[in-house]
Design a protein around this nucleic acid. Structure first.
Lengths: 338, 338
DNA sequence: CCCGAGCGCTAATGCGCATTAGCAGTCCAG
DNA sequence: CTGGACTGCTAATGCGCATTAGCGCTCGGG
């Protein structure tokens, strides 16, 4: 491969020559290694620094990484497209948080966009991945690949998942949203308004977020009733047949679809039925309805994920942290029709 | 610095040992260097490949970069926050295009988030930047730093600006939007409807986009009339005093502000005055009005910027390319009141 | 039987940096 | 006057890879 060689870059040796010292000294000055073993008098130090400033020298990050194993580069892997259109910008706030924190701690972000989509899924560990270029990695996505996770765990690669994940050959570090608590609070609030028959519309299993939401529901009602979303038309039929006064929609989009379909049948929300959404839209779901539910602290999750990751890289312990969701006052939850 | 050393990674030497060949051979196989000089029989090749597959070996990107000067990593530098809130997601579509193309050509994206904000501005060339980790870089932002640009040019670092830029010690490679042409077409359309007195509301100078839009305007009307936006209140006064039937707003947000203020004064748009916006909102500008104007092909610009950049890295020539803007039919341009 | 021409591979080197070991000089206590 | 301790630096090494030069072997023609 012919080296592109954009105008022969400066190296520490060049700086050393210009400053009349050794390359070692330049490195020492650059990294502030003025410890007991190797002390550099202020005069020498200043001379080196001056040359560096005058020449605009900057250390080669690749060489640095190779020699020191540290980079200040954080990987970001998303199982869905990073700048998604199909997911209705659901991931945007996470990235805002990630970016904020990265900027704060002087890290660059490496977006692993090169991961090819194989069989409809992306994988961290694909042919020729560049994981090792980063000091660690943040994982983002609705559903993570379990093989990826367990390999990351066994290889002890520093990473943090945004969103709680089940163990994968070991505990998975994460910063997630506390869905069970959020759902419980919603149920409590709903019952306080007088609702006695509250159904859960969703799968209740599969990806961790669904499991967690459903668990919060199951643990807070006496007689859980789960309705499968299935086909839109069936969904309405099932809900109406269930004879309930309030429905928790596992996905925001389900809540929207349900409400729209109900309206066409002349069933009013919340007049005839209260509808509560669990979480923010992960699919585009245009609606004018202001749903009652909760907000996932997405930005904060992104921020704390980076925080936790940097600590992990510094040698800290893996962390599993759940953040509270914020109650979102809306117009779709009222006392039941008496 | 204590090497984190996450479970002693595999190296080519390990693979070599396992396959009973030399490290050189592994490298040759890995890079498909089966040219005249060094031919590897299929049998050996397969053996090496099998070991690689079995062990899941992946070359260290840092070492690779150091030795070969090539990385398949593209830098992305944004002068505004990458995932902005303040800019109302204006940059989002660019990034979508950039991501798309990067994924397409198997490149990872390095977001230079570590650039500190000094004096309210970011700079590519800051203390300890990581430019050299990437093979090249895409620049994004309303207004780029001219020192950065000229240094990039003189250092012959491969880069592409998203948006046209003036020369900076040499031509700046870019993929931009053809504002002059777009504005000319809008003016032509406006005049075709019967408007004779068309004003330009904006600065008409400063960042290249403003200059280009204004140029398109100046070159297509006989007697240009530029109105300074200035303070909102003054803006309305100036527009009304100008006695025109149509206004081109340099910035989308200006168009919104103007229209809102006019409404409060009882001046209707487009009944009393047509308002045409030039470009998409770069600031949050909530409005129900559907403005007539044009759309910047943001996604396509991002995509082509990456395309041009990769060609540049491969040794191609620097390119300056303008993309057409799409006319956006709206509700704010009608024939003038007779 | 010898020699040149492939063939199939490898030893050696360097990319730019961080780090370890250690050298030459000075100073002071004994 | 000597030896240890401290001071101020540097030579050497290796990180994991790509690349260059070239080695030992076989084979066929003369």
């Amino acid at each position: 491969m012919p080296p592109p060689d954009h105008t022969r870059r400066l190296t520490q040796r060049d700086i050393a020559r210009l400053a009349g010292v050794s390359q070692t000294t330049v490195s020492l000055v650059l990294n502030d290694r003025a410890d007991a073993e190797s002390r550099i008098p202020a005069e020498t130090r200043d001379r080196v620094l001056r040359v560096i400033r005058e020449t605009g020298y900057v250390a080669d990050p690749a060489a640095r990484r190779l020699a020191a194993r540290r980079n200040r580069i954080l990987g970001v892997f998303t199982y869905e497209p990073v700048f998604p259109s199909a997911t209705g910008d659901f991931y945007h706030p996470f990235l805002v948080g990630i970016e904020e924190c990265a900027e704060h701690c002087g890290c660059d972000l490496l977006l692993f966009t090169s991961a090819p989509t194989v069989g409809g899924r992306k994988r961290v560990y694909h042919q020729d991945h560049r994981l090792r270029l980063a000091d660690g990695c943040v994982l983002l996505g609705h559903e993570l690949d379990r093989e990826d996770l367990s390999r990351l765990v066994t290889e002890r690669y520093p990473f943090v998942s945004v969103g709680r994940r089940d163990d994968a050959g070991g505990p998975v570090p994460y910063v997630g949203a506390d869905y069970p608590a959020a759902v419980k609070r919603l149920v409590a609030r709903t019952r306080a308004l007088g609702h006695e028959r509250i159904a859960y519309l969703g799968h209740g299993r599969g990806p961790e977020p669904y499991v967690d939401r459903f668990r919060g529901y199951v643990e807070s009602v006496a007689a859980p009733l789960r309705l499968d979303p299935g086909e839109p038309a069936d969904m309405v039929a099932r809900v109406l047949a269930a004879d309930v006064t309030a429905v928790l929609a596992e996905e925001y989009a389900d809540g929207v679809a349900l409400t729209d379909l109900l309206a066409r049948r002349g069933v009013s929300v919340p007049g005839d039925l209260s509808v509560i959404t669990l979480g923010d839209p992960t699919r585009p779901a245009p609606t004018d309805v202001d749903f009652t539910g909760f907000r996932i602290p997405r930005r904060e999750m992104g921020r704390q994920a980076v925080e936790v990751l940097t600590e992990l890289i510094e040698g800290g312990e893996p962390v599993q942290r759940l953040l509270p969701c914020e109650y979102a006052e809306g117009a779709t939850l009222t006392p039941p029709r008496t």
